Simulated assay, not measured.
Amino acid sequence: MKKIINDPSTVVAESLRGFALAHADLVTVQEDPAVVYRADAPVPGKVALISGGGSGHEPMHGGYVGRGMLSAACPGAVFTSPTPDQMQDAITKTDGGAGVLLIVKNYTGDVLNFETAAELAAAEDVEVRSVVVDDDVAVKDSLYTAGRRGVGGTVLLEKIVGAAAERGDDLAACEALANRVIANVRSMGLALTACTVPHVGEPSFDLAEDEIEVGIGIHGEPGRQKMKIAPADELVDRLLDPILEDLPFTAGDRVLLFTNSMGGTPPIELYLAHGIAERKLADAGITVERRFVGPYITSLEMQGMSFTLLKLDDEMVGLWDAPVHTPALRWGV
């Protein structure tokens, strides 16, 4: 294992300290329990948006804390759910009196722990609602989830609903919008290499030099199929076809296409794949109105990529374009 670390047991804490120094103008980082807050939290009269999950997916979620996105993020150990006390602290520190929306990826630990935190907050008379993101079409069940996993669609939801909260939408409206995004977003990924969790010290699954894994999860879960490496055109088909069939997406749809690096895929390959996907969607009569390309929900150093497709409406387009100012996303400011 080759990694730029001191001790596997302190990776997350040391990384958060560096993150705090790099972005002190935007966020406040608390070490115990570990929570990343907006520097101006709580914002009076604004719905607070909170998410979180295991570390190792950076910039998600801490990189999306700031104006126009999240109020707070709860980072767990690598690929491990944060704990209810982290989430409860995030709720307390960010509640501006308009309620709190929890954005939860569909992994069993995340769902249970966020549910516990919501119950504890309700006992303190804080209005808390939750939405569960389950956009991965690769599997219906996995070792980590009850049902589909929450993956790239989470980032798009946090941006769109974050903009709605920033403009003053109430809790019920933010919840309804989040569920609309969930109903219209689908994702799928593949890996050329496995990732290595620092405290494990070995790859999360085995791949021969000429093999790839299609349908992987962001925690290094094996996918639905091993196959021989193939040209990029075929790999794009392997990801896009199941996405298009699932909703389904059809001619006349307007979409946001998110082409994501799993952490180790260089931009030259990512843009190549994105171009193929755009052409394939155009051939199907689907209009790509917005694009998003880069390493925005990663799996440590995994070489691979994922596609996320969101069916857009006019409101979603406007909210996507709205100003955002976070460590990882900045536009319109």
Rank of each mutant, 00 (worst) to 15 (best):
G223W: 01
Q303W: 07
P203T: 14
A138S: 13
I218M: 00
I5M: 02
S130I: 03
T196C: 15
P75F: 11
G147F: 10
A165N: 02
A163D: 01
V181W: 05
L49K: 10
I4A: 13
L171C: 10
V236R: 00
I103D: 00
K311G: 12
L21N: 05
R17I: 05
T298S: 09
D125T: 08
V155L: 08
A322M: 12
F79C: 09
E234Y: 06
V43S: 09
I286R: 03
I50F: 15
G215V: 10
G54L: 03
V35E: 08
Y271E: 10
V43P: 07
G76P: 04
R291L: 14
A39H: 10
D32P: 00
L309M: 09
A273N: 12
K228L: 15
G215A: 09
I212F: 11
K311S: 08
D134K: 11
T92Y: 02
E127K: 14
W320E: 08
W331D: 11
L102W: 09
D241I: 00
L319S: 03
P82W: 14
I229M: 09
G96N: 03
P327L: 02
P295R: 05
V255A: 13
P42M: 05
G53Q: 15
F307W: 06
A191N: 02
E127Y: 07
C174G: 11
N106C: 03
Q225N: 03
F292W: 07
L300D: 07
T10G: 09
A118L: 13
G275D: 08
V104H: 05
I182P: 14
D89Y: 12
A118E: 09
D313G: 13
S71N: 02
G152F: 04
A138V: 14
E278I: 13
D89A: 13
G223D: 03
L319F: 06
M305T: 10
G150W: 05
S51M: 07
L329E: 10
N184Y: 07
P44Q: 02
A98W: 11
L112S: 11
A194W: 07
A117S: 15
V11I: 04
S55Q: 04
G99T: 11
W331Q: 10
P75R: 08
V137F: 01
A194M: 10
V132Q: 04
D313I: 01
V47Y: 12
G53C: 15
R238F: 02
A90D: 00
R290A: 10
R17H: 09
H199P: 00
G263I: 14
L272G: 08
G285L: 00
I268K: 13
P295Y: 04
D237E: 04
I4F: 12
P84H: 05
V47D: 13
P33K: 07
L192T: 05
G275M: 13
D170N: 13
G264S: 12
I218K: 00
W320S: 08
N184W: 10
Q30W: 06
I243T: 00
G18W: 02
E315Y: 01
E202R: 15
V29S: 04
A194H: 08
D89T: 15
